[in-house]
Amino acid sequence: MTLPELLVLFLAFFEIGLFTFGGGYAMIPMIEEAVLRHGWLANTSFSLVDFIAVSESTPGPFAVNIATFIGMTEAGIPGAILATVGVVLPSFIVILLIARFFRAFSGHPIVKAVLSGIRPVVVGILFTVMLSLTVKALFHSPLWPLAWSDFDWKALVIFAVIFGLSRLNKKIGPIILILFSAGLGILLYGLV
């Protein structure tokens, strides 16, 4: 890949990083559009759907995974680095500015008042997240529409075991619980 092409790769992911709110999955339509516009992934036997599936089943932020992936496929390690830096840089700059502002004004009564309204609302949003992740785990479907025929008892067993463990001994860290649930998944879905 030539230098201008690498620059295009960087700028495309910078744009994607700058204009997606609310996490990595919101990026998929913009990534699709960029892949079409720039003719990426034309020389591989894999489609964007494969890339999305792999990015979902590897650790780390989805946005970073998919950027690294496309960059790597298009231009090797330099491409992977530029695409990843591109997708991360807008967040980095915006958050630095906000954190600076926050440090200067966090004691101001208006900022305090605004935050006192935001905190309970965030708790409400987290309740929604908690509900939709639970439904997704147990039914493999979104919150709505919900069908009992989709109910997965194996997922419920894993859910119950992990819940019990986390309540029984609060010292068990989240990483151990994640590894344990992965093991239970392989055991229940693969062997039972």
Binding site: D50, A53, V54, E56, S57, V122, V123, L126, F127, V129, M130, L133, T134, K136, A137, L138, H140, K154, A155, L156, I158, F159, I162, F163, S166, P174, L177, I178, F180, S181, A182, G183, L184, G185, I186, L188, Y189, G190
Partner: peptide
């Protein structure tokens, strides 16, 4: 792409992550 057990592990992880989020949300509540 053809490792089926990776998919199984991820189905397990989805259930585990739901528990983690429930615990975190209740604590923040």
């Amino acid at each position: 792409r053809h490792l089926t057990w990776v998919g199984y592990a991820f189905q397990g992880i989805a259930a585990g992550v739901a528990v983690l989020i429930i615990n975190a949300a209740l604590k923040l509540f």
